[in-house]
Design a protein around this nucleic acid. Structure first.
Lengths: 214, 214
DNA sequence: TGTAATGTTTACCAAACGGTCAAATTATTG
DNA sequence: CAATAATTTGACCGTTTGGTAAACATTACA
């Protein structure tokens, strides 16, 4: 009798790992499209190709799925910022950060939307993550940017709002994809829009952050 | 017996106008916080201070409320872009557009979130609006920006992505407010963040759009 | 191979939800 | 002041949804 929900033996089974992976992938699909309240367990189970009770054998509640999923996504989501290198060339670092973020918006739009949905509804599940690890990471990188400005390598600017603006502009292409496509129209809304966006954003930031009178 | 739902007499009653206004205000509160599926009619009725059947007397379905609300919001939401003046000074026009959008994010965050929620879920209710009136308006203003660039008044750039980036950066402060507050921390997350954001964004865009070698 | 742990399914439940109905109440107007 | 139209309410209904119970099937391992 397996009363305990896949947690008695401390060690995770092969099947457990496979099925949990399957469920999280399905959950990403469903949650990112419908938000937390809009998604149903039945939907997720359906996409995952299993019955609802079977899914609930691995995750006790809908919230548990969402929590596990968003924790995992949040972690990889911040990788580009972690790679931000203090010793590198400022312009090159910022440029490649924008590129990486834009690539993620292009290649992982579901993750971006999942995150957007969560923050939009007040981020009840990741409040601590935001105020702790995320804030710490941003604080650290903001200090780097500030030091660059102080050293006269880039124009003086508020490093926090610089980071916010990069987040906003890049994730916009994932989160507001429908709107972007609608405005660009059928002709120009192909995959090339990410290249266009990259070109524009690099131009904007390189121009905006360069020292006026060198 | 008033079988027809407030629509028999063609002319709207005083009570109808008042109550519909009340409902839409309550709906804005609830929808913007919980999204379409996350919001319930009971919640809206509660906030509006009336019974559910009474609310449903004015709007037949939940979707009808949402549709009416988003139509109204979308209209005023685009006002700043409409004010964009081709004959004005390019830098001043862009600067004041950013300011206005940022003021709207500050003063009408619920409207911004309502819109963000709708676009995130694929904008099923306003697809036509986006592909029609919105696209037209943006096309028009993009042409203005392009002409400025051609005349050498601002740097060459993709006008569509310029507009997207202004939308993204300004609305970010409404839609991702929780995250912004969390990262800035208690000390710096006061109302001053909008002033800081305005300063940063104006600096970024004025620098990024200025002609390199004048 | 037997047996205990793990995994899966069918049937089900209670609460929440969108929406209806008919009766009761209030506002408007001839 | 009638009488008619507009508004409000409480009771109710069918469906969806998150989650459970227990029987059944499969896997792992001594």
């Amino acid at each position: 009798m397996a009363i305990p929900r896949a947690a008695k033996t401390q060690r995770r089974t092969r099947i457990q790992e496979e099925k949990e992976e399957l469920i999280l992938e399905a959950a990403l699909e469903v949650f990112s499209q419908n938000g937390f309240k809009g998604a149903t367990i039945d939907q997720i189970a359906d996409v995952a190709g299993m019955s609802k009770p079977n899914l609930l054998y691995y995750f006790r509640t809908k919230e548990a799925i969402h929590k596990a999923l968003i924790q995992r996504v949040l972690d990889t989501w911040l990788d580009p910022l972690r790679e931000f290198n203090a010793d590198g060339n400022p312009e090159a670092e910022i440029r490649s950060y924008i590129r990486r973020k834009l690539e993620m918006a292009r290649d992982y739009p579901r993750e971006s939307r999942l995150f957007a949905n969560e923050v939009l509804r007040g981020a009840p599940l990741i409040e601590d993550e935001l105020k702790g690890p995320l804030k710490q990471l941003v604080d650290e990188k903001a200090e780097v940017i500030r030091s660059w400005a102080k050293a006269g390598k880039i124009a003086k600017c508020d490093p926090y709002h610089l980071i916010f603006s990069i987040w906003a502009t890049t994730q916009h292409y994932a989160d507001f994809d429908v709107q972007v496509r609608a405005v660009l129209g059928q002709e120009k809304a192909g995959e090339g829009r990410f290249e266009d966006a990259a070109r524009f954003l690099e131009g904007l930031y390189m121009g905006g952050l360069s020292i006026p009178n060198k």
